[in-house]
Write a protein that binds this DNA or RNA. Structure first.
Lengths: 335, 335
DNA sequence: CACAGTCACTATAGCGGTAACTTTACAAAA
DNA sequence: TTTTGTAAAGTTACCGCTATAGTGACTGTG
């Protein structure tokens, strides 16, 4: 095995404690011995055993990141942001994929807690804070920050975008482009899905537009279901002339369905997504979208979490809202 | 703090060791006491402290995954595969992003080793095994598996696709489709880039086709550089009529450049990528590609690594080659 | 000169577990 | 009766590190 502090101590004829302190540049070690220790450590290629250290300091310098889907480039981008912030601080990121499943998510969070991570960032698949998960989270003192999705009733730290704003921005844009029969491929029944739906409804109401119930389809969250959802919308007697999609993958799927049906985008139907996934402008029809600054979400969440960890005591709940930005591309440009 | 084994022991009036054994269902504990211990553990919501355990067992049940870019959905898919395999085995995945930088990668691997991960999976940005990294890896006994890229001279465990096969498959296909002036947007100077280039050259040679030197552009590895690379190719006097791109993002960028230049795909220029990134068929022109079964790569690598970890001693190097599969979509279909 | 204060270092006691030996009690074999 | 065996514990010694409370030598002070 590799060298331990004990070895350095014996080699130098000093006590183990002297070595420990010297290595951490503790104040009551003379410059002289500190240098001797450091040198010997280098010679032996000493690497501190952080497991042993963690056992006594109760810090692991690991943070958990629980996201619904790594494949969704929105979350991959968030993950990257988190890594960029935490890496330099000496933290490792442990990633879990909940597959958009609330129970799996709860289990994974428990595992992370059992692993004594110093903090957790979650893009939660929970729809509300009732249920065991949040009880567990609150009982343990491990700080955590939610991102992107805010379960109803949640009162803790949060970083994300106002979903209602996204819904309004997107829907208003479609209206401005001349759409009058605007449908919505809505996401899952969690905060983001509901918030964007609310924004969609408010925008319509503001412009005194109506949308029949069947104009809101449960599109879930990825391109496959966007495609299916759109196909159903296309079968309606009164075909929509604009669609606001829960996110970009759904939007991409929707475009595929529309083109397959022999219709044009944006001519027959204008489409807008959300998330500004990086390949959006490489799509068949470059997809208009609402940008959520995903890397910024990751970085802000990381920064907030880092503060909570440093503070070593619960901080008053902080909410960081990142502004949403409309990005117009071909899929919705009619004028 | 939460309950420790000591607490259970005191509550039940047995020794700490009895509790330790009982919890692990060790054989020399009576069914009776085992049940008592288990019950009390449940009542106290006892969670084993895996840090303490790791300190003595020398197992952390963590594995490191070092990839060049989480945003590239090929690697995200690999990561997912790794997670799917290791999750049920009780391992946590620690992900590092090397940003396609060999030095950063080396540093990150060192950090992972210092963290005492039980094993490491790397999609390496190293071009050859000279250099410090592999010395370090070999010195420590931590098992590791390389995926996707094989640095020259590497002799250890590997899971991936034959890059030359990819290059040949793609280039042959373009030739079959009637292309005669075939260019290549090549990837970085690492195994994958060189292997695919070799395959491209061999396929051309087999069909007695020639390609001027400037037909091979260094396209790097993402859509931005694919776009730039293609623009340069378009300025050549003898414009190519087919392009084999290092990977799908590069292919997507290339298509963008071609369309922007007012040319058609595949009519004027046929395009094929590699990797079968999940959004490939949502692109402006659905992109032909070579499928590498990325999730399978992740899973196989995970399985191999798990074996190495279990074995507790170096295993003879194993190489798993996943077959490549041609997927023809619109971007190259001329007949 | 006694006393307190500082400096540089050391001894001890854990952190929460596990491995490897004992030990004890009781039954079966010699 | 003594030996042996075995099931079911218990003891002890760490794993590698840190926190805390000393210790001894030396300095300055009234």
């Amino acid at each position: 095995m590799s060298a331990r502090m004990k070895d350095i101590a014996q080699d130098l004829g000093v006590s183990l404690m002297t070595v420990s302190k010297a290595l951490r540049s503790h104040s009551d070690i003379s410059e002289e011995t500190r240098r001797r220790v450091m040198n010997r450590a280098r010679e032996l290629n000493y690497r501190p055993n952080w497991i042993a250290r963690s056992l006594v300091t109760r810090r692991t310098y690991m943070v958990g990141l629980v996201i619904p889907d790594l494949m969704h480039s929105f979350f991959a981008e968030v993950a990257k942001g988190v890594g960029r912030k935490f890496g330099p601080l000496g933290y490792q990121i442990v990633i879990s994929n909940s597959e958009e499943n609330a129970e799996a998510e709860a289990r994974q969070i428990e595992v992370l807690l059992d692993r004594n991570v110093d903090g957790i960032i979650v893009a939660s698949a929970q729809s509300h804070i009732r249920g065991e998960l949040f009880r567990i989270l609150e009982k343990r003192e491990t700080p955590y920050v939610l991102i992107d999705r805010m379960p109803s009733g949640f009162e803790g730290h949060y970083v994300g975008v106002h979903d209602e704003e996204i819904g309004m921005l997107a829907t208003n844009h479609l209206i401005e482009q001349g759409c009058r029969r605007i449908a919505h491929l809505r996401g899952p029944v969690i905060s983001t899905g509901s918030g964007r739906l609310r924004g969609y409804r408010r925008a319509l109401a503001k412009h005194k537009l109506e949308a029949p119930l069947e104009y809101v389809a449960s599109g879930l969250y990825e391109d496959g279901s966007g495609y299916e959802g759109m196909r159903k919308l296309l079968q309606l007697r009164k075909r929509p002339d604009g669609v606001f999609c829960y996110n970009d993958p759904v939007g991409a799927g929707a475009i595929k369905a529309i083109l397959e049906a022999g219709l044009s985008v944006p001519g027959d139907i204008a489409v807008i997504g959300a998330g500004n996934v990086h390949y959006s402008d490489l799509l068949r029809i470059p997809l208009s979208t609402i940008d959520q600054s995903s890397p910024v979400i990751g970085e802000s969440a990381a920064e907030l979490l880092a503060q909570c960890i440093e503070a070593k005591k619960p901080l008053p709940p902080k909410r960081v809202f990142i502004p949403a930005r409309l990005i117009v591309r071909e899929s919705s440009r009619r004028k």
